[in-house]
């Protein structure tokens, strides 16, 4: 029934990274950062039909100090941006940020003076989820992809090597507006 039944001779071999990743993703507590319409869809994903509790995530911690994941759900106004950063700073490592909705990912339909054009101007984002608002199924898909990411996070020297690799790739990457030839 459980994992231990399936193990040959009751012994499981894994890596430290694997266990750490599994522990982190299996009980991944979100911090409440619901701002606007996306917050309602986030609440319904915690509701009975799209149940986030099956991923161990139904406890939305009010205090960022007890949370692992900040789901920025909704449009971040200029007045709210410092508050967002402060909440992010108050979270303890390891922490992840999921930008839910187009307003959090890129400013969305509100390309104006009042909205921060993407929360990655303020906090580092691990997962972008477009949609206006994204359906709860889309949110769960993004969370599961983030779980994959968390599961496969490297630790220690592997992590430093990975960081250097990502940085060089990003520095050599083609800028988005130069990626021509994609329209068929």
């Amino acid at each position: 029934m459980g994992l231990e039944e399936k193990l040959p001779s009751g012994v499981l071999l894994t890596t430290v990274e694997g266990v750490a990743g599994y522990m982190r993703k299996a009980s991944f507590w979100p911090a409440t950062f619901g701002l606007a319409c996306c917050a309602i869809e986030m609440m319904t994903s915690g509701g009975p039909r799209y149940d986030l509790a099956r991923f161990g995530m139904e406890v939305f911690r009010a205090s960022p100090r007890q949370a692992d994941l900040m789901i920025v759900a909704g449009r971040v106004s200029q007045k709210m941006a410092p508050v967002l950063r402060q909440i992010y700073d108050q979270m303890a490592e390891p922490k992840w940020v999921l930008a839910m909705g187009v307003c959090a990912s890129s400013g969305g339909m509100f390309n104006n003076y009042a909205i921060v054009q993407g929360v990655d101007h303020v906090v580092p984002v691990d997962m972008y989820l477009p949609g206006c608002p994204p359906r709860p199924e889309m949110l769960i898909d993004a969370i599961l992809k983030l779980h994959d990411q968390v599961q496969h996070t490297k630790l220690g020297a592997h992590r430093s090597a990975e960081v250097i690799e990502h940085e060089t790739a990003a520095l050599n990457a083609v800028p988005t507006s130069e990626m021509k030839g994609l329209l068929r």
């Binding site: 890129s106 400013g107 390309n111 104006n112 003076y113 009042a114 054009q117 800028p175 988005t176 507006s177 130069e178 990626m179 021509k180 030839g181 994609l182 329209l183």
Partner: peptide, 19 residues
């Protein structure tokens, strides 16, 4: 006389000016 304050948006292969 106050501008809308939009920024140009980058897409793959193009940049769209603000509204």
């Amino acid at each position: 006389d106050y501008p809308l304050g939009g920024i140009p948006v980058e897409y793959k292969g193009a940049t769209i000016p603000p509204p």
